[in-house]
Nucleic acid binder design. Sequence first.
DNA 1: TCCATATTTTTATAAATATGGAAATGAAAT
DNA 2: ATTTCATTTCCATATTTATAAAAATATGGA
Lengths: 131, 131
Amino acid sequence: MEMKSAIVALGALAQDTRLAIFRLLVEAGPAGLPAGALAEQLAVAPATMSFHLAQLAQAGLVTSIRDGRSIIYAADFEAMGALVGYLTENCCRSQPEQCGPGCLPPARTTITSAAKGASSHEKVSRSRRGQ
Amino acid sequence: MEMKSAIVALGALAQDTRLAIFRLLVEAGPAGLPAGALAEQLAVAPATMSFHLAQLAQAGLVTSIRDGRSIIYAADFEAMGALVGYLTENCCRSQPEQCGPGCLPPARTTITSAAKGASSHEKVSRSRRGQ
DNA sequence: TCCATATTTTTATAAATATGGAAATGAAAT
DNA sequence: ATTTCATTTCCATATTTATAAAAATATGGA
């Protein structure tokens, strides 16, 4: 997966309703769910649901199949796996041990948490704006 | 990691400049890079860089340390690992085998790619808008 | 064909975001 | 104390995004 499509996928998931949609679809498995059911469960207008589903579809994260009058959406697990793979690469390339479980396979749990001096700085602050 | 912070983190990475920033910081490792160097490397105005760095900091994806006149930013690998973990959970909960490598630890590579019928539908289309 | 249902497109509007110039802040050097 | 350098805040502007009402499209049944 290259940067461009990763950004589109990330943007697609970076929204309350869409992330909720995707979670429902993951839960539903390959069988998926019709757009109407999703709209009802999440209590959003049909047009709004269509907008978000289109966004997810364009990002390649969901698949759509027409079944009679309904259109059934399903999570594209392969695409999601590719996204996770991209992030894993871009997270762990230099410091595999620090990424915690979930980033790399939970093989070596013996992370002695030492020997990684940050040059010669002090005063660590986690954020700035709105702490 | 709960949904709210995952969305913030996803949104922070779902942007060209910010993803590029993060990739540079991952490459730089725990030592990090000063804001000025990032601005120069990515050819964006200082004010713009500051804006994006604030966004990443607020999302908890980067750390900042003042070193003399410079402020050094570094990727927060632990936070990134948490994000990847969240996505992995929300991707593979129902269909671990289909997520491909990168989602689950590349243990069982014997995915026979069969037996996952989607109920009883036809006409699979990957997208709609702008295909 | 006509009607009912499911979804999408169109259109408009409000809100959020990205951008960079100019001024302000913080820290070091003279 | 003044100057210099790095970064941030303030401000204005352009773009993108989320939302929903109304109209359009597609499907199935009477």
